[in-house]
């Protein structure tokens, strides 16, 4: 184990022919740590994560540095990035249904994710799939591998996606709004699962979300983004108890609280028959 960060992003700038979308963003993730990227739509948080994975559209011009385990990622070929993605670096997206192929069983798809990087027989791949599904607590994994995506609930599908992300035991997990489409009780389970997985595998995590309460729970450190720029960076405690930036403060103030309420206009309770008086 080294003290060097596993992922280091330095002065990342992403520009499209028409506009710059990310401007000089820097952050790092230590071994086993979680960086939360939080911001509203258009803040550049998803573009940043796509850049780390090498999934930006061709017309995007990227400058800066992204080093992963001391290897520079910017400027790598698609082929080199493909070898990395799904293997040492895995992704979990918002919508599991559109990330899964409806025509194949989930077991086949998890097995493919494994075999694409590690090879081996279909049977061996399927065995890995069962193990991975067990690890994300899908009951009866040995039977469920043969089911199709539509036979799973939204929360279960996201577990399948997490199983697929974990099958090659990645060093870095990139989760882009992984619980946004889920019901709140399911969200709580998935967040708990991600924390457990990270604990047991020691993987680092880049967690992208618009939800401040979620990011406060999952992150060690947080980067608040707006219009492609970093407005503030710090530990979760710093950001939430002593925000130094006005925008962060506004964002926190705008977030509705479950344990506090604003005043409402008084309802008019008209007794029957007195409406004309």
């Amino acid at each position: 184990m080294t003290d060097k960060p596993m992922l280091q992003v330095v002065d990342l700038t992403i520009a499209f022919p028409t506009a710059a979308v990310v401007d000089q963003v820097s952050f790092e993730i230590p071994q086993g740590g979680t960086m939360g990227l939080v911001g509203e739509s258009g803040s550049g948080k998803s573009m940043t994560s796509l850049a780390v994975m090498g999934l930006l559209p061709r017309e995007a011009r990227t400058t800066g540095r992204i080093s992963f385990m001391d290897e520079e990622l910017l400027g790598r070929s698609d082929r080199q990035m493909r070898r990395l993605r799904g293997d040492r670096m895995a992704m979990i997206f918002q919508d599991p249904l559109s990330s899964l192929n409806p025509y194949y069983t989930v077991g086949f798809q998890i097995a493919e994710a494994y075999r694409a990087h590690r090879g081996g027989s279909r049977r061996a791949g399927l065995r890995r799939a069962v193990e991975a599904m067990d690890r994300v607590k899908i009951v009866d994994a040995d039977k469920r591998v043969n089911h199709y995506p539509h036979q799973f609930s939204g929360g279960m599908r996201q577990r399948v996606m997490i199983a697929m992300a974990l099958v090659c035991e990645p060093e870095l997990i990139i989760a882009d709004e992984p619980t946004t489409a889920l019901d709140v009780t399911v969200q709580a389970q998935i967040l708990e699962l991600l924390a457990e997985v990270q604990q047991s595998t020691g993987a680092g995590m880049l967690f992208i979300t618009h939800d401040l309460a979620v990011v406060s729970q999952v992150s060690d450190r947080i980067t608040v983004m707006r219009h492609g720029r970093t407005v503030e960076q710090g530990t979760a405690e710093q950001i939430f108890s002593r925000p130094s930036n006005d925008y962060t403060r506004q964002l926190l103030a705008a977030t509705p609280r479950l344990d506090d309420q604003v005043d409402l206009p008084e309802p008019i309770l008209t007794p029957v028959g007195s409406e004309d008086s």
Partner: peptide, 27 residues
């Protein structure tokens, strides 16, 4: 919100992610 009686309401409220109240208070 402050005194839910039904078990389901309680579990729903418990599942809502919240910022650590001590951080909130400090802010």
């Amino acid at each position: 919100f402050d005194a839910p009686r039904h078990e389901y309401t309680q579990s729903l409220l418990a599942a809502v992610p919240q910022v650590d109240p001590s951080w909130e208070a400090a802010r």
